Simulated assay, not measured.
Amino acid sequence: MPITKITAKGQTTVPREVRAALQAGPGDLLVWEVGPDGTATVRRLQPLDVEYLRALEGTLNEWASPADEEAYRDL
């Protein structure tokens, strides 16, 4: 089990074994997901994920009015 240290700047090195398992290399983006129990998982962001998120981002502002916040507050 590889162990790394977080620097004062919040940086860490991704161990070789983890990079190999993720098939990640220089320039790749990693996604960190934190579960409700405090565990974190990391995966390599696929190019399709980025394109999808950018497309989705442009559609979300129509749901950001004060009336929407009031209507959906308890969901």
Rank of each mutant, 00 (worst) to 15 (best):
54 R>Y: 07
57 E>D: 13
34 V>I: 05
36 P>F: 08
73 R>Q: 05
44 R>I: 01
8 A>P: 00
49 D>N: 00
42 V>R: 08
65 S>C: 05
46 Q>H: 07
75 L>V: 15
63 W>H: 03
16 R>Q: 11
26 P>D: 05
6 I>P: 02
36 P>E: 11
67 A>C: 12
73 R>M: 03
39 T>V: 10
55 A>N: 09
16 R>M: 13
28 D>Q: 13
12 T>Q: 04
66 P>D: 02
48 L>M: 03
67 A>W: 06
22 L>M: 03
67 A>V: 07
55 A>H: 15
53 L>P: 01
17 E>Y: 10
56 L>S: 09
59 T>P: 07
47 P>L: 11
38 G>T: 10
30 L>M: 15
54 R>S: 09
15 P>T: 01
57 E>F: 01
1 M>G: 14
16 R>C: 07
42 V>L: 07
27 G>W: 06
65 S>G: 09
12 T>L: 05
44 R>G: 05
33 E>V: 15
4 T>H: 09
59 T>M: 12
45 L>I: 02
8 A>Q: 04
38 G>N: 05
67 A>I: 02
58 G>E: 13
32 W>I: 12
17 E>T: 12
51 E>I: 01
23 Q>R: 15
71 A>C: 15
10 G>W: 01
41 T>M: 06
59 T>G: 10
69 E>N: 13
56 L>V: 04
8 A>K: 06
11 Q>R: 02
21 A>T: 10
24 A>I: 12
12 T>G: 02
69 E>W: 08
72 Y>W: 09
3 I>D: 15
44 R>Q: 06
73 R>N: 04
2 P>N: 10
71 A>G: 09
10 G>P: 04
58 G>L: 14
18 V>P: 05
47 P>K: 00
9 K>P: 06
68 D>Q: 08
39 T>H: 05
